[in-house]
Amino acid sequence: MHKAIRKHHTPVRRCVICRASLPKSELKRYVCTQTESGDTIPVFDKEQVMPGRGYYICNSPECEKRFAKFRGWRK
């Protein structure tokens, strides 16, 4: 691929709540981790580098509120 094309590429991800496609840098990423009791919970990944399946949500207060009830990460 030509370097000029790569230089302007911006990764795009989709909010799991409202399904809006936005640049990755504008979204918050959560990763599922296991607790000591064996339960799986989503944890905020500030640096966006943790291993595992990532779930992205936009900065909308409605999406943040609905993410608390989101169960898609249990799959």
Rank of each mutant, 00 (worst) to 15 (best):
Y30V: 04
K28I: 10
I5R: 10
K7Y: 08
K3R: 09
P51E: 02
E62N: 08
R71L: 14
R13T: 04
T33L: 03
K24T: 12
R71K: 13
G52Q: 03
H8K: 09
V49S: 08
R71T: 15
K3P: 12
E47P: 00
P61L: 01
V31F: 06
P61E: 03
R6W: 04
R19I: 10
R71A: 15
R71N: 13
M50A: 13
A68Q: 14
K7F: 06
D45F: 05
K3S: 06
C15L: 06
L27W: 00
D45E: 11
S21L: 07
N59V: 02
E26W: 05
T35M: 11
A68N: 13
E62L: 12
H8C: 04
L22G: 03
P61G: 03
Q34H: 10
K69C: 08
R74N: 07
M50R: 11
W73D: 04
T33A: 10
S37V: 10
F67I: 02
R19N: 15
F67W: 00
K69S: 14
M50I: 00
T33G: 08
T40G: 02
G52C: 01
S60M: 01
R29S: 07
G38V: 10
H2C: 02
P23S: 08
R53E: 00
A4F: 06
I57V: 14
K46H: 03
G52E: 04
A4G: 03
M50V: 02
Q34P: 00
P42I: 05
F70N: 00
K75W: 13
T10E: 12
M50D: 04
A20S: 08
R71G: 14
C32Y: 01
C32V: 15
T40V: 11
I41R: 14
Y30H: 15
R74W: 04
I5Q: 05
Q48N: 14
Q34T: 08
L22D: 07
V49D: 04
P11Y: 05
R6I: 04
A20W: 00
Q34A: 13
G54K: 03
K65H: 14
V31P: 04
S37Q: 12
I5C: 03
G72I: 06
E47R: 14
I41L: 15
E62D: 14
K69Y: 09
V43T: 12
Q34K: 14
H9Q: 11
E36I: 11
A4R: 07
E26A: 12
E26S: 11
K65Q: 15
P23K: 09
M1V: 07
I5L: 08
K28N: 10
A4K: 11
R13F: 02
R66W: 01
R66D: 05
C58T: 02
R53Y: 02
H9R: 06
H2Q: 06
Q48M: 10
A4E: 13
D39L: 11
A20K: 10
I57Q: 00
C58L: 02
K3V: 09
E36F: 13
V49E: 08
P11I: 05
H9Y: 13
Y55C: 00
F44Y: 14
M1I: 09
K24G: 07
T10W: 04
K69L: 11
Y55M: 00
